[in-house]
Design a protein around this nucleic acid. Structure first.
Lengths: 120, 120
DNA sequence: ATATAGTATAGAGCATACTCTATACTTGTT
DNA sequence: AACAAGTATAGAGTATGCTCTATACTATAT
């Protein structure tokens, strides 16, 4: 698929997709058989990658962090043990983010009670 | 206390504190009795505010969002019902952030199983 | 053949959140 | 009195993550 289709399937603007491409997060392939242009082709893996970027960003990871783990993940050059380690580390990071949010939530709930008791 | 003490107590640099001051998140008070300088005085509420900024930022809120809710909170001009509403909305926002993180976690755990089963 | 729509590249511009520098004044110590 | 250290203000610079513009080429429909 071309970039406009990738944009449609992911809901991410073409501009932003090109930014991700330059950043090294995705990389379309130009078909050497077609010599008249250098349009880039994207596939289902690119769709998956973009969807993962969207999720990971919402979870508070930077593009730099996303790039690092995604390149590792899709490289097919890492042994199983190393892949397990990467994913486990990511889970730990997500867990501490969840923990931080729960702390904030706790503070908010306490504030709620203060307001209800007229102590604020 | 002066800005250096506020910095010490919160662990936030003086530069950043001044940035927050310009942004309208905190506001030291110059003592009119002292005419030789215009040093700003900060109090325990400012410490609380800065600590709250740190937590809220970790939870993914922008300075703009933090400013809005904090000004409402410390204004003492809002009725209890309005304050309750503000805090409840913030809790909802935190809950959806937690939900998003749990989705990401779920994906990571699924990836972990794929790796363990050699399907990746 | 031509209008239009799509694609690629390069680079400018923008918002957020700092971070640092320059300048000038004030305070405290010796 | 002199000097280091602290404070205030203004503004420049930086990193991240877009977002937009300009330019040029390509593809498709009429």
């Amino acid at each position: 698929m071309l970039i406009s289709e990738l944009s449609k399937q992911t809901g991410i603007s073409i501009h932003t997709l090109r930014y991700y491409e330059n950043y090294g997060l995705i990389s379309g392939v130009t078909d050497d058989a077609v010599k008249s242009n250098n349009y880039k082709q994207y596939d289902e893996i690119d769709v998956e990658k973009v969807e993962w970027i969207v999720h990971a960003k919402k979870a508070g990871f930077t593009l730099s962090e996303i790039k690092k783990s995604m390149n590792d993940w899709f490289s097919n050059k890492l042994p199983t043990s190393k892949k397990l380690e990467i994913v486990q580390n990511k889970i730990s990071e997500v867990d501490s983010k969840i923990h931080e949010l729960k702390q904030v939530r706790k503070f908010l709930v306490a504030s709620l009670k203060d307001v209800e008791n007229g102590e604020c």
